[in-house]
Design a binder for these strands. Structure first.
Lengths: 146, 146
DNA sequence: TATTGTTATACTCTATAACTATA
DNA sequence: TATAGTTATAGAGTATAACAATA
C-alpha cells in the first residue's frame, strides 16, 4: 500500500487507467458469471420499480430508451409475471406498472447471483487487502455518483 | 478509512455489493462518456490486434463470438480503414488481419477519451482519497484477473 | 474428412414515424 | 393541441445452417 503521495500528472493518469480497466473487467466478469438470469435492461427496470410503481413513460425517460422499447420490455416482464400493469384511475391515458411478488423474488435471486462472484473473491483476500478495498469502496461510490 | 477488521459474513457481503455496484456504475459512466467513438466490440478486436496480426477464426474464438459475426466486424473495421486483410501465404484458407496506422491512432484516441472522465474525477479528490484508490487499484486488478 | 471464411436467413434489442385514445 | 401508449417498420448486432475453397 503506497504511503507516498499520488499527485503527479503521470501518477494520476496511470491510476485512472488502472482503475478504469479494473472496474470494466470486474463488471464484465460479474455479468458473465451471472448470465442466464434476467437480461440487464429488464433487471434495471425491475430495480427501478422496487422504489415504487411507475408509468412506462417515466421508466423510458429514466432508463434513457424510447417509449416503444419500454412498451416491449414491460410486455416481456409482464409475460414472465414479474410486473403487473394497471390502468391509472386518475388519467385514462396512463398505465401503472408495478412489481409482483414474483418480480421481487426474481430481483433478490438475481442480486444474490451477481454478488456471489465478488463475495467469493473477497473471501480469498487477506485482511489488509480487504481493508484497502473497504477504504476505497466509499470513494469509488462517490466517483460513480458524480 | 476503517482501521478495524472487515471479517464478518455481513461485512464482507456489504463490501462485495458496494464494490460490485461502484464498478458497474463507473464502467457504465465511462462507456456513456466516451460514446460516439468506436463501438465496444470493434474496440475489443482492435485492442487484440495490437498484440499482433490474427486470423478471423482466432479473433472469433478469443472474443467469444461466431465466425460470421467476426467476418462482419472485421469487414466494418476494414471499411473504416482501421485494419487490413491479407491472404496467408502458408495456408490458402486463412486470412491475416492486422492493424493499420490509422487503426493504431484510433485505438490511442479512444483510450484517451475513456480515461478522461476517470482522470477528471480523480483530480477532484483529496490526497487521502487518492491514496486509498491507489492501494485498492492493485487489489481490484488482481480480483479482475482471477 | 476437417477447417477457414463467407453467404443466407432469422432472432433480439433498439430506434423513428404513424396511429389511437385520452386530456 | 399535447401527451401516453401502441403498432409498423427498419437498422444494428448476434446466431445457426449451408456453402466454397483449401488442407
Amino acid at each position: 500500500m503506497p504511503q507516498t503521495a499520488v499527485a503527479t500528472e503521470r501518477e494520476v493518469g496511470a491510476l485512472s487507467e488502472d482503475l478504469r480497466l479494473a472496474c470494466m473487467r470486474i463488471s464484465r466478469r460479474v455479468r458473465f458469471e451471472s448470465a442466464g438470469e434476467i437480461a440487464p435492461h429488464q433487471f434495471s427496470v425491475l430495480a427501478r420499480l422496487e422504489r415504487g410503481p411507475a408509468s412506462p413513460r417515466a421508466l423510458a425517460d429514466v432508463e434513457k430508451v424510447s417509449a416503444p422499447s419500454m412498451t416491449r420490455t414491460v410486455g416481456c416482464l409482464a409475460d414472465q409475471g414479474l410486473v403487473a400493469r394497471h390502468d391509472d384511475p386518475d388519467d385514462g391515458r396512463r398505465i401503472i406498472v408495478e412489481l409482483t411478488d414474483e418480480g421481487r423474488a426474481a430481483l433478490r435471486r438475481t442480486r444474490q447471483g451477481r454478488n456471489r462472484w465478488m463475495h467469493e473473491r473477497i473471501l480469498e483476500l487477506g485482511e489488509q487487502d480487504r481493508r484497502a478495498l473497504a477504504a476505497a469502496s466509499e470513494v469509488l461510490a462517490r466517483i460513480a455518483a458524480r
